[in-house]
């Protein structure tokens, strides 16, 4: 068996509370209070190469913090993150940073409003030396093709694009670096349903054509079922349930998961024959 692409082992992220020095001093003291909030609390998670894993949970469950730790945006308090068997520390070289890319929730705030979409993509290609300088423009066009955007978008600033188009630019930006791991953190929750469906189809298709490994973070169980093979359910910083998506949804072991499933509104719940007008 090959090593999984991503291995997270006992990861804890604590916000607030005593700093590293105070913790070192207290380590010898039995029962010394840790303080702060454990946003992620001893999480272990394995993502197989080429797989698609869903991370489900409500606001405050720690799912985004977990992903930000994987990306290197927040330092873990304890635990390890390994990519391809190599530990991912808080300081990473360019090649390591390139390997993990994220698509954020709101493309309106994550694309530089002062630059054209083409220059946003071109800068990445140059900094990371993805293609020779004379091939940059052609590669930008290829990326726009990949996310099904017209080539004219290259000369456009983000504010002129619709929400769905902006999110496609954000996906192109993540894919420009040919990452090993693509994290989609509520990547479609700011979009209208019809646009959401088209962006999800795009992600599923990119998974098939580029072989990228996907982690999809969402509060929407149907979305996770749509995109992923396996899923974990997070609550209060801990993973409370994990397994194949179909199994979790058809036979949830945890009461919390059952509650999440029951709470999701479905079209079949429509009141029928109760038309009062």
């Amino acid at each position: 068996m090959s090593t999984p692409l991503l291995e997270i082992d006992g990861l804890t992220v604590r916000f607030g509370g005593p700093g590293p020095l105070a913790r070192a001093v207290r380590r010898g003291v039995k029962g010394a209070p840790g303080g702060g909030v454990r946003a992620v609390d001893g999480v272990s998670l394995t993502v197989p190469r080429g797989g698609a894993v869903g991370v489900v949970g409500e606001s405050g469950s720690g799912k985004s913090t977990l992903m930000r730790a994987v990306l290197g945006l927040v330092p873990p308090t304890a635990g390890t993150i390994r990519l391809d068997g190599r530990p991912l520390g808080p300081r990473r070289d360019t090649a390591t940073r390139r390997a993990v890319q994220m698509v954020f929730q709101d493309p309106g705030t994550t694309l530089n409003p002062a630059r054209t979409c083409g220059s946003i993509l071109a800068e990445l290609l140059r900094v990371h030396r993805i293609v020779p300088a004379d091939r940059v423009a052609a590669r930008v066009t290829d990326l726009l093709d990949l996310v099904r955007l017209p080539h004219g978008v290259a000369g456009t600033r983000p504010h002129r694009l619709s929400g769905g188009q902006k999110q496609r630019v954000a996906i192109a930006r993540a894919l420009a670096l040919e990452p090993r791991l693509l994290i989609a953190d509520e990547a479609t929750s700011a979009l209208d349903v019809v646009v959401q469906a088209s962006v999800l189809d795009l992600l599923a298709e990119l998974r098939a054509t580029t072989g990228v490994t996907l982690v999809a973070v969402s509060h929407d169980l149907d979305l996770v079922r749509y995109l992923c093979d396996t899923a974990v359910v997070m609550r209060a910083g801990k993973i409370v349930e994990s397994g194949p998506v179909a199994e979790i949804l058809s036979d949830p072991a945890e009461p919390y998961t059952r509650e999440l499933i029951a709470a999701a509104p479905t079209l079949s719940a429509a009141p029928s024959g109760k038309d009062r007008q």
């Binding site: 349903v193 979305l223 009141p271 038309d275």
Partner: peptide
């Protein structure tokens, strides 16, 4: 009526909305 709109949508856009529903 909700039951009719959900099962027999008359407008193409309503059909599009229904088709976008992941479930």
């Amino acid at each position: 009526p909700a039951a009719r709109v959900l099962t027999e949508p008359r407008h193409p856009y309503t059909r599009e909305l229904l088709e976008a529903n992941l479930a």
